[in-house]
Design a protein around this nucleic acid. Structure first.
Lengths: 186, 186
DNA sequence: GTCATTGTAGACAAGCCTGTCTACTTCGTA
DNA sequence: TACGAAGTAGACAGGCTTGTCTACAATGAC
């Protein structure tokens, strides 16, 4: 019997795990469900991912690459300027699959039982911050400014999760405007 | 047999559930563990909280009151000025029990299976935002400024969860400084 | 042509999860 | 003094969890 789907087993598992983990949470998603919905058997699954923690790590790595690629692309398509950040995040927040930042959610859910997710989240945000720094003029405090913008963005992401995306974006816009208007003075 | 502890059963359960839910996460904490560690039996537990969801709701309500009382007190003790916010959150982040915002964490963990936590989180942040607004001079845009500060604070809270509290506080300080310096001009 | 890799189906173990149940005790108050 | 509220111990049900196991088939590289 051939597999009906086009993709090899590992990718089918990872894609399905991504959607389930991101939309329902990691602990809420049983391995059995990932296995059933990716059209694979237990042996095949456990040959690729010896434990659920291995799948979680692969999920976060995959998510990181996918999200960052989208982020860079969206920034380009909005003008590659620091003020592009607001429409970029508007695009994300309005996506019907939006459920916050996968890394922030995973830290909240698992940090106490799988401490390495803290490091993984930090690296993810470092890469996001580097992209933001690339939008700013070179100056003594460019990196610090990019870090502060990244913190504001984290705030807007979680705000959009439990409040309206409009409120989140309005606040983000105010913060970014304040900071870049003032930046050259310091 | 008398209960050895001083507190009535319901409060013992709630206190223990609070500590376990906040530090390990809600799904990671089984009812059996809450029952065992609060020194109560199953019947007693289920008489007070007919289901785990009832306990979760009570936990969030208790957390809200406790956190807000601490927040107001800490602001008073740091001068009741908008610049007091940085030392107030420094105090929290450096507490060894700190594990982020209980409401943000719960939204990330449960929003898809218990949607009402979104509303609960929003109300919590509304109350926090009202306290912040009380630190600002009355003006046309006071509420909007308070909302933006609340978003920045949310960002700093999650940042302190997976990065150093110093980085989180430095960014928060920069954002607050930018915004209040510019505020009177607008 | 041989052999490792990757795939198939599905039974099974052992433990943890929430929630129910019987049967008995202690206490405060009307 | 009678009664309801709140407490005790612990067995039990049924379902979901992760992970292992047997036994067999197709594929591709050397």
């Amino acid at each position: 019997m051939k597999p009906a789907s086009v993709l090899p087993a590992r990718e089918r598992i990872l894609l399905r795990a991504h959607d389930l983990f991101y939309s329902h949470g990691i602990r809420a998603t049983g391995i059995d469900r990932v296995i059933a919905e990716s059209g694979v058997t237990k042996v095949t699954f456990y040959r690729h991912f010896p434990s659920k923690n291995d799948l979680i790590r692969a999920y976060l790595e995959y998510r990181h690459e996918r999200w960052l690629a989208w982020f860079k692309g969206s920034i380009e398509s909005h003008g590659a300027n620091v003020m592009a950040l607001v429409p970029v995040f508007a695009e994300w927040f309005q996506n019907k699959e939006f459920r916050g930042c996968a890394f922030i959610n995973t830290v909240g859910e698992l940090a106490s039982s799988l401490p390495e997710v803290g490091c993984i989240a930090r690296r993810h945000k470092e890469d996001m911050t580097a992209v933001i720094a690339g939008l700013l003029p070179e100056s003594l405090n460019r990196d610090e400014l990019a870090s502060a913008l990244a913190v504001a963005i984290d705030g807007a992401i979680v705000r959009a999760q439990y409040d309206s995306s409009e409120n989140a974006l309005r606040s983000l816009d105010r913060i970014i405007s304040s900071m870049i208007r003032e930046a050259p003075i310091i």
